[in-house]
Design a protein around this nucleic acid. Structure first.
Lengths: 342, 342
DNA sequence: ACAATTTGTGCAATCGATTGCATATTATTA
DNA sequence: TAATAATATGCAATCGATTGCACAAATTGT
């Protein structure tokens, strides 16, 4: 009935040798003669042998699985990071198991736990916005399971991280607007709890400072960074008759929302208000005007995370020192901010 | 040194019972008394017991893993489908292992194989553009491993599928353009080998036919469906002085490329040329004009695929009949095609 | 009060691959 | 040529959980 899967024992029986020898032959163990190796390989092919990673994992304690936890998979940034990780993992014969937290703390904890049960060899994760307690992550570390955080990270637990230099990104975007002649620059940001927004905000302030532009708190809008939040913020600014000639939004979506409102009101972009976003979402090149943004190189971030992960995996826990890879962001200038045509 | 993981045997020892009982208690087996169950559960918590799915998988033959194979993870459509699958899988205590084929046949084959080695309980996949040989998939079926194909599928192997009604989508988009007054409608399509493009093309033709508009093959452009292909196609049409007042592109990207050229040439959209794309990519609502498109409900598609998957999983192979879930597409009308304001 | 059930646990094999140690065979050296 | 070293393979335990079957104790029926 069922085509009874073939195991190393079946191969062994056919060749009148033992499973140990077959196992060693398949793993190219130097203690096995080339003749035997060839015989085993041939027989394996004949019998359509399919290795059972599960059995190997149980015995060896290595599942060849990497768990990836992200708030949501279908966001360009996250899926691109996953892509980068998968790319590297795949070449090293590792698979990735992905799971979403939906920004819900309980899910994040449950997911870490599920990964633990699945016996992943390690975890690569981006922390949910509402996560303030990191016990589920420190548990991993305690158990000696490699953990690499990316983008939304924390320094509160000693583990490797990959981030872009958000401070620099914020600085670059702001500086660019200043260089385009803006002096009254609005900033859209979010909760100060999340490292990335905090750093971009710092970059914004620093740039203003460096160019001797007074920081004006009333030009800073806090929101949830979605399209709608950008629309609301822009409407309020206009309603309150705030004067501004530039917007640096920590999110492309919010920037887009603001652009929509400005266009509706007949305000010219970039002539009257120059706009820069953050993340370089795929849509930024398709909008009108195309949106200036900061690229975070998500695929590279995924690759970097995978590399740190494998570093950890190959280092003994006691002599491990957490690494932090900081990627350089890139300012992608598009028409939404480009006043001067050179 | 190492905190030695606790197993069911450790729990058993502490309670002076056997591992069998512990296993049954943890699995809420009715043959175990409530008293014992509680004792086991408490002890499990005390000892920080973490189930080992690998061991269970080896014994039971069920890994609780679903393999997902897509051409690339970081495309909105695919990542959204994965999201949908993960959502359902997660509630049923399954994890998803994702892998990319990059549209390369060899990768696809290798990936199926890797999934087999990892002993996934089944596979959900979208076929690469260059795949003409389906042996790697039929192998899965032969082995009794559930396989569900989505979007880019084939009828050549008897397995369950989830698709949207691409024919209908093509029809709806074309009909809409016709209703907007277009009579000379260009169509962007790709290789006829891929079912989705073929069906959309058929829908296009059928709509023309139903509205008594002569089909004009010279208005059909074949390309790779990327932004650049749309730009090239549009340029060629203009260079050849083709007359057209509408474009139905089987890809939002190509549609966008065409829009860029039309705008550059000062051709008014939708007044002179109305445009409709396909896929309802996230960027379509951000472009100017916003792009009319056909929504494929990718998250729902993922959920549907997961459901078909679990159906298969719970049906004996012999009495299994391949299912095909056909989702209804939806026309999302935006300004790129909306001539008449009602 | 004794047989027939029902209920709750234990025994031991099993899933498939890996690996430390032992052993047999062959090759090398003094 | 005997002793030593190198080479190739086998033995058996192990990883941790599951499960068919056996069996003892408790409950029910008559």
């Amino acid at each position: 009935m069922k085509p009874k899967k073939t195991t190393i024992h079946d191969i062994a029986d056919k060749l009148n040798i033992t499973a140990s020898t077959v196992s060693r032959a398949l793993n190219n163990n130097p203690r096995i003669s080339d003749t035997t190796k060839k015989a085993v390989l041939d027989m394996a092919k004949d019998l359509h042998y399919q290795p059972n990673n599960i059995a190997a994992a149980l015995r060896s304690g290595k599942s060849q699985l990497i768990g990836i936890i992200v708030p949501t998979i279908n966001r360009s940034f996250f899926s691109s990071v996953i892509r980068g990780v998968e790319e590297v993992a795949n070449t090293l014969n590792y698979r990735v198991v992905v799971s979403q937290s939906y920004e819900i703390f309980e899910n994040e904890v449950a997911t870490v736990n599920a990964m633990l049960n699945a016996r992943v060899d390690g975890v690569i994760a981006s922390i949910g916005k509402n996560t303030k307690n990191y016990e589920h992550y420190t548990n991993l570390i305690k158990k000696g399971i490699p953990l690499v955080l990316f983008d939304r990270t924390t320094n509160k637990i000693g583990t490797s991280q990959v981030v872009i230099d958000d401070f620099l990104g914020g600085y670059m975007a702001t500086e660019h607007l200043i260089q385009q002649g803006c002096t009254k620059i609005v900033h859209f940001t979010s909760s100060k709890k999340v490292n990335i927004y905090k750093d971009r905000y710092r970059g914004y302030k620093e740039a203003l400072n460096d160019y001797n532009i007074a920081f004006n708190e009333s030009l800073v809008c806090k929101g949830n960074m979605q399209l709608e939040d950008g629309r609301i913020a822009a409407e309020q600014l206009l309603a309150l008759n705030k004067e501004f000639d530039g917007i640096f939004s920590s999110s492309d979506y919010a920037a887009m929302g603001a652009i929509q409102i400005l266009k509706e009101k007949g305000i010219k972009i970039p002539e009257e208000v120059a706009v820069a976003g953050f993340s370089n979402e795929p849509f930024t090149s398709f909008t009108d005007p195309a949106l200036t943004s900061i690229s975070q190189f998500p695929i590279e971030m995924g690759r970097a995370a995978a590399e740190l992960f494998f570093d950890m995996l190959h280092t003994e826990k006691k002599k491990f020192i957490p690494q932090k890879t900081v990627l350089q962001p890139e300012l992608v200038i598009r028409t939404s901010s480009l006043k001067t045509i050179k």
